[in-house]
Write a protein that binds this DNA or RNA. Structure first.
Length: 275
DNA sequence: GCCCAGGAGATGT
DNA sequence: ACATCTCATGGG
């Protein structure tokens, strides 16, 4: 069924932009268990289509289709590098993932490469998620915190996540004990960020990824190695450390800093723009 | 074999 | 507050 006709590059958004690591690809379709239901998405000239029993409103929000990206480049017209990066990827959007999924994914991301992060997130789902058999293959749900909290450290270590295993298990336990993960989206940015960094394996950068990709905090500005480089190259951040770079970017770029970050990050990481 | 990866935590200053 | 080390694993 048709879920929208907004500009949306599904391969870029779901597979190649390193904001999400849990979609499968089958030909030109992309599948995952979303909101408890397996779904395959496909895009063509007539729009974005979903194959499966799905909640259209949920999927539209997940894909951020309700946000108008057409004005984003204009918003940052005073920064040519920013406007260029946005113009490069007319189908890139920042997903609205579940906070728990973003939390797990970006705990796995610490000092790790994109290829291996995907492998770890997929392994976690295959090992602890629920299987759904579809025409295009088997899809797995993202396991609930209680399942990860109940898993043995050995079972997690077997997935080759290394020193991140205790981070994951202990964070899952804290979530199960009542950490208000679902209300982070309603808190002021600073409060939500501070609270997130109390979790094991969650520092400044991972907290910002969780807020941006899982809690609708569009001003969150994660600074990784690529963003650090590009901010120094193009935005006058020479000599600043990551904390200072983030403060500068949030001040310069405002409420939608995180959206811009995603375009800049992808442009830099893929070599579309030199850093 | 080497350096690197969407860093965090511990330690020392 | 800031700089430096180490951490597990494998991609390129």
């Amino acid at each position: 069924m048709l879920i929208g006709n907004e500009p949306a590059d599904l391969k870029l958004m779901l597979m190649d932009s390193a904001q999400c690591f849990r979609w499968e690809r089958a030909g030109d379709s992309f599948g995952a268990v979303i909101n408890g239901k397996p779904v395959w998405l496909k895009s063509d000239d007539s729009g974005i289509h979903a194959d499966g029993e799905c909640d259209i409103a949920y999927l539209r929000r997940y894909l951020d289709l309700e946000r108008d990206y057409s004005s984003l480049a204009g918003m940052y017209a005073q920064y040519p590098a920013a406007a260029n990066a946005i113009t490069l990827y007319p189908g890139l959007r920042v997903l609205n993932q579940e906070p728990w999924e973003a939390l797990v994914s970006f705990i796995m991301s610490a000092n790790n490469n994109v290829s291996r992060i995907r492998g770890l997130v997929m392994a976690i789902m295959r090992r602890f998620g629920t299987a759904f058999h579809t025409e295009n293959g088997t899809l797995y749900s993202f396991p609930e915190p209680s399942v990860i909290a109940a898993a043995s450290l050995e079972a997690l270590t077997e997935l080759r996540m290394g020193y991140r295993a205790p981070y994951l298990k202990n964070t899952a336990t804290i979530i199960c004990e009542g950490f208000p993960i679902e209300t982070l989206s309603d808190m002021p940015y600073e409060e939500a960020h501070k609270l997130l960094t109390t979790l094991p394996g969650v520092g400044d950068k991972v907290a910002d990824c969780v807020l941006l990709f899982g809690c609708e905090h569009a001003s969150a500005f994660p600074v990784d190695v690529w963003v650090e480089r590009l901010m120094r190259s193009w935005f006058g951040a020479e000599g600043l450390n990551r904390r200072q770079i983030k403060a500068l970017a949030r001040e310069k770029f405002g409420d939608h800093a995180g959206l811009l970050q995603q375009f800049l990050f992808h442009a830099a990481r893929t070599g579309a723009i030199n850093v």
